[in-house]
Design a binder for these strands. Sequence first.
DNA 1: TCTGGGGTCCTAGGACCC
DNA 2: TCTGGGGTCCTAGGACCC
Length: 387
Amino acid sequence: MPERRIAHIDMDAFYASVELLRRPELRELPVAIGGRGGRGVVTTANYVARRYGVRSAMPARKALELCPQCIFLPVDFDEYRKFSRLFKAAIATLAPQIEDRGIDEVYVDLTEVAGETAALGRALKQRIVEATGLTCSIGIAPNKLLAKIGSDLEKPDGLTILRADDIEPRIWPLPVRRINGVGPKASARLNGMGIASIGDLARHDAAALVGRFGPNYGRWLHEVAHGRDERPIVTESEPRSRSRETTFERDLHPLRDRAELREIFTRLCAQVAQDLQRRRYVGRTIGIKLRFDDFRTVTRDMTIAQPTADAAEIQKAARACLKRVPLERKLRLLGVRVSSLSAADALPARPPPPAPGESLELFPAVDQAHAKSEGRLQSASPNHRGH
DNA sequence: TCTGGGGTCCTAGGACCC
DNA sequence: TCTGGGGTCCTAGGACCC
């Protein structure tokens, strides 16, 4: 099997860069995209703002402390989605095997694409800038793990090619946090064990990692530290859930602000329903999410007999979930989620009405001994839960 | 005056079944 | 009274990612 050639393409400061296309006069100024108000956070900052320490996910108020002259622009997802389609289409003109990783990044399999690697990387950047006016950073490597790390090494407008013998000199010195899948928690635990760099991780005993992090995560940590990753490019996937949630302008009291909460709740249910209908999905598991004023988050869900995309049915189930949560604090967030999705078209047809004389019993009485001996062989036994 | 919104995957316990 | 073993489904929470 030939060694693979995988690219990770990451658009530079995507939301901010799209905004600056229509506001070029702001190009040299610090710009942040996101809500400026009370509970707003920065979704993206341009590189000028980053020099002041402004970062994604930072509360807007903190960003303004660091950079009082920072210009805040509201998010415009429709516009970003438009440019997302454009840059992905530009990539598809060169390489058809594309894995979508969200609005601003993709993996691309270049293994079967003709051309020298660096030239291909430059061609991808060229097509993208022609189609959108935007720059990106690209990593090309034998697998997704290394391609992703690579795309981050020379931002913005970078092109980094990594081969197997680059792992020791270029990957091992990096902090473990740079591994996609090692977040703040795992990173802190590793640091506490004296493991700061990816090289430290690679030199650590694999069995000890399994002992600390469990068999799956422990083994995976050991593998990725050595640059090993066999995950394929996944070009098609089905959604698992759809949801809507909102953080209130101010914390709401479950009783005193009942009317307002009910209105928001109804709206969230309607929005999820509309979203499912537009995409032609139905779901069997309905859930809610609450966040209290102390930031504690709880979820409840329930599985219903028949999948649905109907706002009233979703709301009915969601209300039942809501009743299972003791509301003894103010709320800052409410969310509604539908999961266990299936295609609406694939809905099993309503069972036909019984022919005259046919039993109406769901499970007609049968000879007990017979039923028992048959039972083991039947793969589709009725599921009584969730009724 | 802290901390958005929309996702995925994993784990773990209990119910239930054979 | 001394209590297996394997499987699936459901539920809740958490880590992580963009």
